[in-house]
Amino acid sequence: MAHTRFAPDRGLTSRMVLTMFLLGLLYVVFVGALIALGVQTVVVLLVAAGTLLAQYFMSDRIALFAMHGRVVSPQEAPELHGVVDRLCAMADMPKPRVAIADSDVPNAFATGRNQKNAVVCATTGLMRRLDRAELEGVLAHEMSHVAHRDVAVMTVASFLGIVAGLMTRVALYSGLGGRRDNQNGAPIGLIVMLVSILVYAVSFVLTRALSRYRELAADRAGALLTQRPSALASALVKVSGEMSRIPTRDLREAEPFNAFFFAPALAGRSALTSLLATHPPLERRLEQLRGISAQLGQGV
């Protein structure tokens, strides 16, 4: 992690290393299997690498464009800039660009491959609903993602899923499905597709597990930086409650960007949904904040 006053998180670091190791191992096995099947993987790997690089270097622009956000000056949004200035001074980190997304969905996100290329964005719906302390807690959470280089890590972690997804499409649309390795053998395309689907599923579960933990780590780091876990807990409860008042159509439109958000636009409650979720359950996040409050001699 780059130098800041955000609390280091050894648990997050160890999980990142373990996830990268498992994904790397899965990648080696996957490519080895494709080569053994006689599949030419060079083009797929080049396309996947190009997609990864574009996502890595342009994540801030892509996220702002997708969420209809725009960078604002201190004159346009003095309160938002004031909160970010205060957090940057507390965290001893460079100030990111500050943006606002015109959306009634109460949320925020931060993105960028490093501290020098970061942007933190709040929606108009979030700014209308939270007081200053709550807004500070949310933005501290988001800026800790930048300090922990979460965007860069998750982008790299998604590479194997991109490759597997592309290989599935190649098998489906290139006519490999009917090609056989010999007269009596199984279709090569079918094997490639099944292997690709399995690899995609495993990599998806691993990256989602890492995503959930990084949200808990961001809650922890943000709460410790501001020394006000109660404000972050209040913001979580308020944002989650207000989501139910947002039209379902708007939430559906925002759902694809859940991985970026402070809180998911739509969150299921089944065991399978929780396994595939980008964020931990609200109860788990509040439980952690209560524990931090107890450590600080406060109450949530």
Rank of each mutant, 00 (worst) to 15 (best):
V98Y: 00
T248H: 07
S234H: 11
L135F: 02
A265Q: 00
L251V: 01
T273N: 15
C88N: 03
A233C: 08
R70C: 03
F6W: 06
G291Y: 12
H141T: 01
V202P: 00
I292R: 00
V83N: 09
A140W: 00
G189D: 03
A133K: 06
N117K: 13
L198Q: 10
R10E: 13
D85N: 13
Q288F: 11
A66C: 11
L18I: 04
V43S: 14
A221L: 05
L176E: 03
L22K: 03
L266Q: 11
R214Y: 07
D181A: 13
V71S: 09
A164Y: 09
T4D: 04
A101Y: 05
M193C: 12
A267E: 09
V202I: 05
H279G: 09
E255S: 14
V72P: 04
V153E: 05
L166N: 07
E283L: 11
R5L: 01
R70V: 07
A235L: 14
G177A: 12
Q183P: 08
H279E: 10
H141K: 02
E255A: 14
P264T: 06
T13S: 15
E287W: 13
G38D: 08
S293N: 07
L296E: 08
Q298L: 14
A233I: 04
L130C: 02
F159L: 06
Q40C: 13
T155L: 02
E215T: 01
N258Q: 07
V202D: 01
R132D: 12
T155R: 03
R179H: 14
L46S: 10
H81S: 02
P247V: 07
S59I: 00
G24R: 06
V39Q: 06
F6E: 06
L139N: 08
A164F: 07
M93K: 01
G32P: 13
A2L: 09
G291L: 15
L266K: 10
A147N: 03
I162Q: 09
A54D: 09
V199R: 01
P256F: 04
V42W: 07
A171N: 00
V43K: 15
F21H: 01
G177N: 11
T124M: 14
L224R: 11
S103F: 04
Q288G: 10
D150N: 04
L160V: 05
L289W: 10
P281G: 10
T168A: 13
V120G: 09
L286W: 00
M93H: 04
F260V: 00
G268Y: 06
I191K: 04
A110W: 00
Q298M: 12
A271R: 15
M93W: 04
A157L: 09
Y27N: 02
A2F: 07
V205H: 13
G177M: 14
A140D: 03
F159S: 00
H145K: 02
S158T: 12
A110R: 02
A122W: 03
V156E: 08
L46N: 08
V72L: 02
L194Q: 14
A164K: 11
A140Y: 00
A267K: 08
S211N: 13
Q298A: 12
Q288C: 08
S270P: 09
V47L: 15
S73F: 14
E134S: 10
F6L: 10
Q298Y: 11
L216D: 06
L198V: 15
F204K: 12
T123F: 07
V205M: 15
N182F: 11
L210P: 08
A152I: 00
M193W: 15
Q298N: 09
Y27M: 00
P106S: 01
F260S: 06
V105W: 05
K116E: 15
